Computed example of a mutant assay.
Amino acid sequence: MGLREIEKDIELKAKMREKSPKFMIKELEVMLNSLKDLRYRLQNFEKKYGDLIVENSEYQEKLKEIRSEIGVSEIYSENTKDKPSTLEKITGKGSFYNQLGVQILNLVKKKTIETGGIMTLAEVVLMINQGRPNEIVSALDVIRALNILEKAEVIPGVKKLDSGIKIVEFIPVELTPDQSIILNLASTTGSITMEKIIMKTNWTQDRIERALEFLIENNMAKLDISYATGKRYYFPGLGG
Protein backbone atom coordinates (compact mmCIF):
# COMPACT_ATOMS: atom_id res chain seq x y z
CA MET A 1 0.00 0.00 0.00
CA GLY A 2 1.42 3.37 -1.07
CA LEU A 3 1.54 6.55 0.96
CA ARG A 4 -1.49 7.99 -0.85
CA GLU A 5 -3.55 4.88 -0.16
CA ILE A 6 -2.58 4.97 3.52
CA GLU A 7 -3.59 8.63 3.70
CA LYS A 8 -6.97 7.88 2.11
CA ASP A 9 -7.53 4.98 4.51
CA ILE A 10 -6.80 7.21 7.51
CA GLU A 11 -9.16 9.92 6.20
CA LEU A 12 -11.92 7.34 5.63
CA LYS A 13 -11.58 5.93 9.14
CA ALA A 14 -11.60 9.44 10.60
CA LYS A 15 -14.84 10.23 8.77
CA MET A 16 -16.37 6.96 9.98
CA ARG A 17 -15.46 7.84 13.55
CA GLU A 18 -17.20 11.20 13.12
CA LYS A 19 -20.34 9.53 11.79
CA SER A 20 -20.43 6.70 14.35
CA PRO A 21 -21.77 8.83 17.25
CA LYS A 22 -24.46 10.24 14.97
CA PHE A 23 -25.48 6.77 13.85
CA MET A 24 -25.41 5.56 17.45
CA ILE A 25 -27.64 8.42 18.65
CA LYS A 26 -30.04 7.87 15.78
CA GLU A 27 -30.23 4.15 16.52
CA LEU A 28 -30.78 4.89 20.20
CA GLU A 29 -33.62 7.29 19.35
CA VAL A 30 -35.26 4.61 17.22
CA MET A 31 -34.96 2.13 20.10
CA LEU A 32 -36.46 4.59 22.59
CA ASN A 33 -39.35 5.38 20.27
CA SER A 34 -40.00 1.66 19.83
CA LEU A 35 -39.95 1.19 23.60
CA LYS A 36 -42.37 4.07 24.15
CA ASP A 37 -44.66 2.65 21.49
CA LEU A 38 -44.52 -0.79 23.10
CA ARG A 39 -45.35 0.62 26.54
CA TYR A 40 -48.22 2.63 25.07
CA ARG A 41 -49.59 -0.43 23.27
CA LEU A 42 -49.27 -2.55 26.41
CA GLN A 43 -51.13 -0.02 28.53
CA ASN A 44 -53.90 0.24 25.93
CA PHE A 45 -54.09 -3.55 25.80
CA GLU A 46 -54.42 -3.80 29.59
CA LYS A 47 -57.00 -1.04 29.64
CA LYS A 48 -59.03 -2.73 26.90
CA TYR A 49 -58.96 -6.20 28.47
CA GLY A 50 -58.88 -5.16 32.14
CA ASP A 51 -61.85 -7.32 33.15
CA LEU A 52 -60.35 -10.48 31.66
CA ILE A 53 -56.95 -9.76 33.19
CA VAL A 54 -58.45 -9.44 36.67
CA GLU A 55 -60.25 -12.77 36.28
CA ASN A 56 -57.25 -14.77 35.07
CA SER A 57 -54.10 -15.16 37.18
CA GLU A 58 -52.22 -16.64 34.21
CA TYR A 59 -52.76 -13.42 32.23
CA GLN A 60 -51.60 -11.39 35.21
CA GLU A 61 -48.36 -13.36 35.56
CA LYS A 62 -47.59 -13.17 31.84
CA LEU A 63 -48.20 -9.43 31.72
CA LYS A 64 -46.12 -9.02 34.85
CA GLU A 65 -43.18 -10.64 33.02
CA ILE A 66 -43.66 -8.38 30.01
CA ARG A 67 -43.94 -5.25 32.16
CA SER A 68 -40.77 -6.22 34.00
CA GLU A 69 -38.87 -6.63 30.73
CA ILE A 70 -39.82 -3.20 29.41
CA GLY A 71 -39.76 -1.35 32.72
CA VAL A 72 -43.49 -0.85 33.34
CA SER A 73 -44.15 -1.51 37.02
CA GLU A 74 -47.92 -1.89 37.35
CA ILE A 75 -51.05 -2.30 35.27
CA TYR A 76 -52.30 1.12 34.20
CA SER A 77 -49.20 2.64 35.79
CA GLU A 78 -49.68 5.86 33.85
CA ASN A 79 -53.46 5.75 33.57
CA THR A 80 -54.55 4.80 37.07
CA LYS A 81 -57.82 6.48 37.98
CA ASP A 82 -57.96 8.27 41.31
CA LYS A 83 -61.71 7.95 41.72
CA PRO A 84 -64.67 6.23 40.06
CA SER A 85 -66.83 7.99 37.51
CA THR A 86 -70.48 8.72 38.26
CA LEU A 87 -71.54 5.72 36.17
CA GLU A 88 -69.07 3.47 37.96
CA LYS A 89 -70.40 4.63 41.33
CA ILE A 90 -73.93 3.78 40.25
CA THR A 91 -73.13 0.35 38.80
CA GLY A 92 -70.28 -0.65 41.10
CA LYS A 93 -68.36 -1.77 38.02
CA GLY A 94 -65.80 -0.35 35.64
CA SER A 95 -62.10 0.19 35.07
CA PHE A 96 -61.62 2.02 38.38
CA TYR A 97 -62.77 -0.99 40.39
CA ASN A 98 -60.85 -3.40 38.16
CA GLN A 99 -57.68 -1.38 38.71
CA LEU A 100 -58.35 -1.14 42.43
CA GLY A 101 -58.85 -4.90 42.69
CA VAL A 102 -55.51 -5.58 41.01
CA GLN A 103 -53.78 -3.06 43.28
CA ILE A 104 -55.24 -4.74 46.36
CA LEU A 105 -54.09 -8.17 45.17
CA ASN A 106 -50.57 -6.92 44.48
CA LEU A 107 -50.30 -5.38 47.95
CA VAL A 108 -51.82 -8.38 49.72
CA LYS A 109 -49.32 -10.76 48.09
CA LYS A 110 -46.54 -8.97 49.95
CA LYS A 111 -48.36 -9.46 53.27
CA THR A 112 -49.58 -13.04 52.88
CA ILE A 113 -46.89 -14.59 55.07
CA GLU A 114 -47.49 -11.94 57.72
CA THR A 115 -51.30 -12.12 57.74
CA GLY A 116 -52.02 -15.68 56.64
CA GLY A 117 -54.28 -14.38 53.89
CA ILE A 118 -56.91 -12.74 56.09
CA MET A 119 -57.28 -9.06 56.90
CA THR A 120 -59.97 -6.88 58.36
CA LEU A 121 -61.70 -4.64 55.87
CA ALA A 122 -60.35 -1.66 57.80
CA GLU A 123 -56.78 -2.95 57.37
CA VAL A 124 -57.33 -3.37 53.62
CA VAL A 125 -58.66 0.19 53.33
CA LEU A 126 -55.67 1.56 55.25
CA MET A 127 -53.27 -0.51 53.15
CA ILE A 128 -54.63 0.67 49.79
CA ASN A 129 -54.60 4.32 50.89
CA GLN A 130 -51.02 4.33 52.12
CA GLY A 131 -48.93 6.38 49.75
CA ARG A 132 -51.84 7.52 47.58
CA PRO A 133 -51.09 11.16 46.79
CA ASN A 134 -54.51 12.15 45.54
CA GLU A 135 -58.02 10.87 46.25
CA ILE A 136 -58.66 8.67 49.28
CA VAL A 137 -60.32 5.36 48.43
CA SER A 138 -63.43 4.79 50.53
CA ALA A 139 -64.37 1.54 52.26
CA LEU A 140 -67.35 1.25 49.91
CA ASP A 141 -65.09 1.43 46.86
CA VAL A 142 -62.81 -1.22 48.36
CA ILE A 143 -65.81 -3.49 49.00
CA ARG A 144 -66.97 -3.06 45.40
CA ALA A 145 -63.51 -3.98 44.11
CA LEU A 146 -63.43 -7.00 46.42
CA ASN A 147 -66.88 -8.08 45.23
CA ILE A 148 -65.60 -8.12 41.65
CA LEU A 149 -62.66 -10.29 42.72
CA GLU A 150 -65.02 -12.60 44.61
CA LYS A 151 -67.39 -12.97 41.64
CA ALA A 152 -64.40 -13.76 39.45
CA GLU A 153 -63.43 -16.42 42.05
CA VAL A 154 -60.06 -14.77 42.59
CA ILE A 155 -60.62 -14.53 46.36
CA PRO A 156 -63.03 -16.31 48.74
CA GLY A 157 -64.59 -12.98 49.73
CA VAL A 158 -65.69 -10.80 52.64
CA LYS A 159 -67.10 -12.32 55.82
CA LYS A 160 -68.80 -10.57 58.72
CA LEU A 161 -67.88 -11.90 62.16
CA ASP A 162 -70.28 -12.05 65.08
CA SER A 163 -68.42 -9.09 66.56
CA GLY A 164 -69.58 -7.04 63.57
CA ILE A 165 -66.09 -6.71 62.13
CA LYS A 166 -65.69 -7.60 58.46
CA ILE A 167 -62.71 -9.69 57.42
CA VAL A 168 -61.45 -10.32 53.90
CA GLU A 169 -60.24 -13.80 53.01
CA PHE A 170 -57.66 -13.72 50.24
CA ILE A 171 -56.65 -17.37 50.54
CA PRO A 172 -59.19 -20.18 50.83
CA VAL A 173 -58.78 -21.66 54.31
CA GLU A 174 -61.40 -23.95 55.80
CA LEU A 175 -61.80 -22.91 59.42
CA THR A 176 -63.43 -25.15 61.99
CA PRO A 177 -66.14 -23.65 64.23
CA ASP A 178 -63.61 -23.44 67.08
CA GLN A 179 -61.09 -21.54 64.97
CA SER A 180 -63.79 -19.18 63.73
CA ILE A 181 -64.91 -18.45 67.29
CA ILE A 182 -61.35 -17.62 68.38
CA LEU A 183 -60.95 -15.38 65.34
CA ASN A 184 -64.18 -13.64 66.26
CA LEU A 185 -63.10 -13.14 69.89
CA ALA A 186 -59.77 -11.64 68.80
CA SER A 187 -61.25 -9.40 66.11
CA THR A 188 -62.01 -6.42 68.35
CA THR A 189 -58.47 -5.98 69.70
CA GLY A 190 -56.31 -7.98 67.30
CA SER A 191 -55.02 -10.22 70.08
CA ILE A 192 -56.23 -12.58 72.78
CA THR A 193 -55.02 -14.66 75.71
CA MET A 194 -55.68 -18.26 76.61
CA GLU A 195 -57.43 -17.11 79.77
CA LYS A 196 -59.88 -14.92 77.88
CA ILE A 197 -60.77 -17.74 75.49
CA ILE A 198 -61.41 -20.08 78.43
CA MET A 199 -63.51 -17.43 80.16
CA LYS A 200 -65.61 -16.80 77.04
CA THR A 201 -66.02 -20.40 75.87
CA ASN A 202 -65.49 -22.71 78.87
CA TRP A 203 -63.38 -24.93 76.61
CA THR A 204 -60.51 -27.05 77.87
CA GLN A 205 -56.97 -25.81 77.32
CA ASP A 206 -56.23 -28.73 74.97
CA ARG A 207 -59.19 -27.83 72.76
CA ILE A 208 -58.08 -24.20 72.55
CA GLU A 209 -54.47 -25.12 71.83
CA ARG A 210 -55.53 -27.36 68.93
CA ALA A 211 -57.47 -24.51 67.34
CA LEU A 212 -54.69 -21.99 67.95
CA GLU A 213 -52.05 -24.35 66.57
CA PHE A 214 -53.81 -24.39 63.21
CA LEU A 215 -54.10 -20.60 63.16
CA ILE A 216 -50.40 -20.24 63.98
CA GLU A 217 -49.34 -22.79 61.35
CA ASN A 218 -51.29 -20.85 58.72
CA ASN A 219 -49.72 -17.53 59.78
CA MET A 220 -53.03 -16.13 60.99
CA ALA A 221 -51.84 -15.92 64.58
CA LYS A 222 -48.51 -15.23 66.27
CA LEU A 223 -47.63 -16.31 69.79
CA ASP A 224 -45.86 -13.81 72.01
CA ILE A 225 -44.63 -14.73 75.49
CA SER A 226 -43.63 -12.07 77.99
CA TYR A 227 -43.20 -11.87 81.75
CA ALA A 228 -45.71 -9.04 81.96
CA THR A 229 -48.64 -10.54 80.05
CA GLY A 230 -47.75 -14.22 79.73
CA LYS A 231 -48.90 -15.91 76.53
CA ARG A 232 -50.75 -13.66 74.11
CA TYR A 233 -51.83 -14.54 70.60
CA TYR A 234 -51.66 -11.75 68.04
CA PHE A 235 -53.52 -11.68 64.74
CA PRO A 236 -51.66 -9.38 62.28
CA GLY A 237 -54.49 -9.46 59.76
CA LEU A 238 -56.86 -8.18 62.44
CA GLY A 239 -54.59 -5.31 63.38
CA GLY A 240 -52.75 -7.16 66.14
Rank of each mutant, 00 (worst) to 15 (best):
M1K: 00
L3E: 11
L3P: 00
R4C: 07
E7F: 08
E7A: 10
E7C: 03
I10T: 05
E11A: 14
L12Y: 08
M24W: 00
I25A: 14
I25S: 13
E27W: 00
E27M: 07
M31G: 01
S34A: 10
L35K: 13
K36E: 05
R39N: 08
R39S: 11
L42Y: 12
F45E: 12
V54N: 01
V54F: 00
V54A: 03
N56T: 15
E58V: 14
K62Y: 07
K62F: 09
K62C: 05
L63R: 07
K64Y: 05
K64L: 08
S68K: 15
S68W: 03
E69I: 14
I70L: 04
G71W: 04
S73M: 04
E74V: 11
I75T: 10
Y76K: 01
Y76M: 13
S85R: 01
E88P: 10
K89I: 06
K89C: 03
K89R: 06
N98S: 07
Q99S: 09
V102H: 05
L107Y: 06
V108R: 07
I113R: 09
I113G: 06
T115C: 11
G117E: 09
G117R: 02
V125A: 12
N129R: 02
R132W: 06
I136N: 03
V142K: 01
E150S: 02
E153K: 13
I155Y: 01
I155S: 00
P156A: 00
L161Y: 03
I167V: 11
P172L: 01
T176Y: 03
P177N: 01
N184A: 06
I192G: 11
E195D: 14
W203Q: 09
W203V: 15
T204E: 14
T204F: 00
R210F: 10
A211K: 09
E213Y: 12
L215M: 15
N218A: 15
N218W: 14
N219Q: 12
I225D: 05
I225S: 08
S226N: 12
A228E: 12
K231Y: 08
K231Q: 09
Y233M: 13
F235D: 11
